[in-house]
């Protein structure tokens, strides 16, 4: 109930500061961070896709450098992790918004988050496993 001027930068801290938060609050923070990460990814994605318009040499050079760099793989895993966490949690919030399972939002979060972790592990093994 304070204006932005009165809040200073407190609001930004309050969005992301996990101290003292309950499960719902932590889920909110994760959702927001992953959402921003996904948006960032979307922009990067579009930025690099732009190289397609610069002809095949440019693109092939880019693909070569990408294949040799371990960072791309790790980055992709982050995208997958973010997508899974955000998407599954998004289902929870969407259900809750129809007043479905609100009293069980914590359990729902635990369940879906576990599912996300399993998914992340699966992709990690798939991508980096021997």
């Amino acid at each position: 109930m304070l204006s932005r001027e009165q809040q200073g930068l407190n609001w930004l801290l309050q969005w992301f500061d996990p101290r003292g938060r309950s499960i719902g609050g932590l889920a909110f923070i994760l959702n927001r961070i992953t959402a921003l990460g996904l948006v960032l990814y979307l922009y990067l994605h579009l930025y690099y896709l732009r190289q397609l318009t610069m002809g095949p040499q440019v693109w092939n050079a880019f693909i070569d450098s990408a294949e040799n760099s371990p960072w791309i793989g790790i980055g992709e895993l982050f995208v997958i992790a973010g997508g899974l966490i955000h998407g599954l949690n998004g289902l929870r919030i969407a259900l809750n918004s129809f007043n479905i399972a609100v009293p069980y939002q914590k359990q729902l979060f635990y369940g879906l988050f576990t599912l996300a972790l399993i998914g992340i592990a699966f992709f990690a093994v798939h991508m980096f496993g021997a």
Partner: peptide, 18 residues
């Protein structure tokens, strides 16, 4: 934005989030 912190801290059984 469904953080559910209101219901977590409410001392008086109002359950605003619900």
């Amino acid at each position: 934005h469904s953080a559910y912190e209101c219901s977590a801290v409410c001392p008086s059984n109002v359950d605003p989030a619900w």
